[in-house]
């Protein structure tokens, strides 16, 4: 069973003459452990695809299934619970809560889900430790660099028992070195069994995915396995 499945999903804004189709009849599936890159020009519908997949927006038509559960059948609170427990979201501009420290930011989905503060913080610290952020756990977002913020955001997206990791241009606000590091983390998360989808303009980064989906004017125009770049020679990437 696919972790994420989109069946003939369409999304339009406005009505009548001013109606704009952001997504048209998009179908795709992402399996556990798979990392998919979505590419396309501005306005092609990449972010809309991700927000619909992440239950942040509703599809006008079609069906979205996460872990086999049809999102349309869930209430608003049910979708929120799905986001807390199953879906992790990483944004281009980090979207960390400025009033909370790094560890509190990572722990908050667990705490919102009713987990005790101590156990939530312990889980958050474990993830931060894995990402090399232990020393920064007590810092507030405005005391972190861009790369550190994004790594914290990824930690928040993978904490708990997440099954789907969605990232909207996660390296857009980072330099190339930090961008690479972030991609490695996404890749690592997928190795741990998470299904990952990320949106990017950068073909070089997209090549690190298992599969690349190309969008234009809301349609999937191409879908291909990523080409291995020369950098793959320098890594132990187990991709075939």
């Amino acid at each position: 069973m696919s972790v994420l499945e989109l069946r003939s999903v369409s999304r339009s804004y406005g009505q009548g003459a001013s109606k704009v189709a952001a997504l048209s009849d998009v179908s795709m599936a992402v399996e556990a452990g798979e990392l998919v890159a979505v590419m396309g020009s501005s306005g092609s519908g990449k972010s809309t695809l991700l927000t619909i997949a992440g239950t942040l927006e509703e599809a006008s038509e079609g069906e979205v299934l996460i872990d086999g559960v049809a999102v349309a059948t869930l209430s608003l609170d049910g979708r929120a619970a799905l986001r807390r427990r199953r879906v992790g979201y990483v944004f281009q501009d980090f979207n960390l809560l400025s009033g909370l420290t790094a560890v509190e930011n990572v722990a908050i989905p667990l705490e919102l889900d009713g987990q005790a503060r101590t156990s939530a913080h312990a889980a958050a610290m474990a993830v931060l430790d894995k990402l090399g952020l232990t020393a920064l756990a007590g810092r507030f977002p405005d005391e972190l660099s861009g790369g550190e913020r994004q790594r914290t955001a990824i930690a928040r997206a993978v904490v708990g028992e997440r099954r789907l990791l969605l990232a909207d241009e996660p390296t857009g606000a980072l330099d190339s070195l930090n961008g690479e590091a972030v991609l490695r983390l996404l890749r690592q998360a997928c190795r741990d069994g998470v299904a990952g989808v990320f949106v990017t303009h950068d073909g070089r980064l997209a090549s690190r995915a298992d599969r690349i989906i190309y969008l234009r004017d809301g349609h999937i125009i191409d879908e291909s396995p990523a080409m291995l770049g020369p950098e793959s020679l320098l890594t132990n990437d187990p991709r075939p």
């Binding site: 992440g54 929120a80 619970a81 807390r84 960390l96 989905p109």
Partner: peptide, 16 residues
């Protein structure tokens, strides 16, 4: 508005 949106994005319910 954005901060509250972030909270909702990571799974906070409307009540929260």
């Amino acid at each position: 508005v954005r901060q509250l949106g972030m909270l909702a994005a990571i799974g906070a319910t409307r009540r929260q």
